[in-house]
Amino acid sequence: MKFSDVHIGKLSKGDKRAFLLLYDNYFASLTIFAQNFGLSQYESEDIVQETFCRLNSNYNLPDNLSAFKSYLYTAVRNKSLNYIRDEKRRRTNDSVFLDLQDDLLIFDKIVENELYRQMHLLVNELPPQCRNIFQRVLKGDSSEKIANDLNLSVETIKTQRKKAKKLLREKYSLVYRSLYTFL
């Protein structure tokens, strides 16, 4: 399910369902975003975690999703900047990091990050069994192996693969172009 405008206000009230959606929709993406500044995955996760936990009882959040996203990305960027400054640390990965002051570069990174995030959400919107099988297909498992692993019949796997193919073609069109080679 997608985190939407209506969930923003619920964060302030400590609504756990709203938080679950927030984590589901944004945690990984923002963590990946923070790593652009040269932080490790672990450090980035801490920064995103701190940002998220502070949303509870924060009654000054923007009420539309676009402004809220902007708020999240800005908060993560600023916290990353502070972290690097305060720790006066060497970046974990010197070769890949953004100039924190370069707004254009950050614009590009956010576009890319958002695109991946939305595409990932689409996968997660597949019915659970469909998704599970789909992910295994992506790994290169054969229908026989998947059937064996999941304790299902080969027929069921084939049906699910057809269903996934149909769903993805109808709903997600070109996003999963390459998928058709698998299904």
Binding site: F27, T31, Q41, E45, Q49, F52, M119, S178
Partner: peptide, 18 residues
């Protein structure tokens, strides 16, 4: 492709943090 998307998000688990 879908594979690239999946790979990008591999190893990120928000459960503990949530």
């Amino acid at each position: 492709d879908a594979d690239a998307v999946e790979r990008r998000f591999e190893g990120y688990d928000y459960d503990k943090y949530y």
